[in-house]
Write a protein that binds this DNA or RNA. Structure first.
Lengths: 160, 160
DNA sequence: TTACTTGCAAAAACTTTGCAGGCGC
DNA sequence: GCGCCTGCAAAGTTTTTGCAAGTAA
């Protein structure tokens, strides 16, 4: 992701590296405050303001995505584009294929999956409401493999 | 909705009636601040705090739903359960069938549609991630019939 | 009358802005 | 060295809490 950042014309600074590392260390998602704490392990003087500003840049580059959880929308996750920007070459800014997240309700881990085939559901919604749908937003909640193995999360019925 | 409220043991107060009316008058969605403004037309002394507290109750009864928009998650919409609680008899608290919203990006109108058939998409996500999915959350954005008719919203390609 | 509600004020939580100094390039 | 970045402090928003007075039942 650092590469994507610099290729977009942003400086490679210690603060930004700390935030990126924090994002990678966070288990798929983190709030700005959590990123600050994680990031300070790598750059003690890191400030919350810089976390916000770095996230803003990453959002604009679509390298991270804002998650909307029941409790609020204060967490961020690395997007598919962000992961694939590991060390490979550039991503056009118009990287617009999008995946969605599955979030573990036990440990908070968030994983993006691809294969966003909602065309027929979108079509049904359009037919039913008369709207013309141009984008959407999907998130799933459940239990990750580790938590299912470790713990007593027996109740995994598919609702809806 | 008033009935559902009182049947759940909450008082029928002027402030709550004002909030309910405001919700009905809002075009499908509104922020607490907007509900305050709308509500004050019916109860001049209405306070923002009461709007929040009433929404909290309505949320717990699943009569309203929190919408998560790109700009944030500060808006509320009447749910299908809320609409059907118009004047009919009670709804068991376990009314758990859920619809999702389509939100007009032009006028902000929000409409809930039913037919939430994501089973195969959920199955794919489970296969791909190893998660066990127990719930989800879907929202669509686009243009409502009125805005499409009225205005110049020609661009309605289905993205995703 | 009794207990639930209300709305003000204040606090808390979260996010953005201003600015002087610091650092990447 | 120049200009982007940073972090502190302060301001702006949004939401929650405390409490005395008010209202439903």
């Amino acid at each position: 992701m650092l590469l994507a950042l610099t290729q977009a014309g942003h400086s490679n600074t210690r603060a930004r590296r700390a935030v990126l590392t924090a994002l990678l260390e966070a288990d798929g998602q983190a709030t700005p405050a959590e990123l600050l704490e994680l990031g300070r392990a790598h750059h003690a003087a890191l400030g919350l303001v810089t976390v916000y500003r770095t996230l803003e840049i990453l959002l604009s580059l679509k390298l991270v995505r804002k998650l909307h959880l029941e409790e609020g929308c204060h967490t961020y996750a690395i997007s598919a584009a962000g992961w694939s920007a590991g060390e490979t070459v550039d991503r056009s800014p118009q990287h617009d294929e999008h995946g969605h997240h599955v979030i573990c309700q036990s440990c908070g881990r968030a994983v993006e999956f691809d294969g966003c085939h909602l065309d027929d559901i979108v079509a049904k919604a359009e037919a039913q409401t008369g709207f013309r749908v141009s984008s959407h937003w999907l998130e799933m909640f459940g239990a990750c493999p580790e938590c299912r193995a470790t713990a007593n999360v027996e109740d995994g019925s598919i609702e809806g």
